[in-house]
Design a protein around this nucleic acid. Structure first.
Lengths: 213, 213
DNA sequence: TAGATTGTTAATCGATTAACAATC
DNA sequence: TAGATTGTTAATCGATTAACAATC
């Protein structure tokens, strides 16, 4: 097995690779034994050189005149993205959004496995989902004991930093933050924040431009 | 009222501005009558020149040696982002995620007002939320009549493009897409897609790097 | 062979950061 | 006045795109 070094994947590339994968998987498998970078690029409104460069960084599969074997490319993408092996995560804050995420089976396709949820509210400990929701006090113990390294934060902004600190103290190395606040972490820990407000800003700005015409 | 031209706000800026706003609002109002770009930058792990440049593009409020008046800056940000006036939107696909978004009162703070939801499943037309959920067939009529210009798509990938086409046909100019698929739209229409897979790719890539040390 | 396609080097474009003059 | 701060011009950095040689 040839290991493709992926140390130089940029953030921009990492955002695009899953989209290629998504697209390739969506194609009917009978046709499309092979596919060219230009075809992919056109389907996704991207530049074809960019697609070729992205793919070259994670696969040796491209053949001039032929293109890429679809099946092989799907495999190479999944390997590069680390979706072949699973990572365990905990989710903190099982409000509506938190529960939606916990119940979303799709995360498994990305190698992300939520093993437990935590919440302060005793009423949610019982009802719930397939997975278990525990009182907040049990979080640090469980995270430490299981060696969990990914934390998903879906608590209100006011307690997000506190939860974040606790997770980091227990060895978590990557935080997926859905609360609308900036989180401070030590070097070596990654925070990736989803931000509805930023998204809405893009939409509203476009509406303003439409209005000015 | 001095109109600050915001035609040259880049996408990057538009993503940062709401974070400044969020941060400024979170400060206790008694202290912090004024605040410097350096303080903001440090709190958010950004470069201070970048913050100063961003703020200069939406406010005339900065004074050397003094900084910015917090209240005025909040106002300028809200104006630039278009969150002072409301825009109506419809949401299509009232599954778990769709309903979570519809119930989220916070969207109003961003000037986004979801006036109706649509779904194929008759069982959701009754139960529901504060807002009304209608059968899919009513979508095009309502969107056209009300002149809705923002559509939120939370349907499965398989029908996202179809829903998108219908919305665009009825005059929608901006699409907020939560389905995991690329959407094709004509010129002049904006698609902003949230993509869980891309986010997870960033997390997983970080875990790989942690492992290699 | 000619055409289609990959992969890479060079050029361009845009965004971030550094340097610095202006000023309360 | 001196120090802190803004705003802007110039320099740097990184990402995208163009040009082109290699090749099945």
């Amino acid at each position: 097995m040839v290991k493709v070094t992926n140390s130089r994947l940029t953030i921009q590339m990492l955002r695009r690779l899953p989209k290629y994968l998504q697209y390739l998987k969506s194609l009917p498998s009978e046709q499309n034994i092979t596919i060219s970078a230009t075809t992919i690029a056109r389907a996704m409104d991207l530049n074809d050189v960019q697609v070729r460069k992205d793919l070259a960084s994670i696969s040796n599969n491209g053949k001039p005149k032929v293109g890429y074997e679809r099946e092989v490319l799907i495999n190479d993408l999944q390997n590069a993205l680390g979706w072949s092996n699973n990572d365990d995560a905990v989710l903190v804050g099982t409000g509506k959004l938190g529960k939606t995420l916990m119940d979303y089976e799709g995360l498994k396709n990305y190698g992300l496995n939520i093993v437990a949820g935590f919440d302060n509210d005793p009423t949610v400990w019982e009802r719930s989902t397939n997975r278990s929701i525990f009182p907040m006090e049990k979080m640090e113990d469980l995270v430490s004991r299981m060696g969990i390294r990914i934390g998903i934060i879906t608590v209100p902004a006011s307690c997000a930093q506190d939860v974040c600190d606790k997770l980091v103290n227990c060895g978590v190395k990557a935080i997926w933050n859905f609360s609308p606040t900036h989180l401070n972490v030590p070097d070596g820990v990654l925070v990736h924040s989803e931000n509805l407000a930023s998204s809405i800003a893009l939409l509203m700005n476009h509406m303003n431009q439409v209005d000015q015409q």
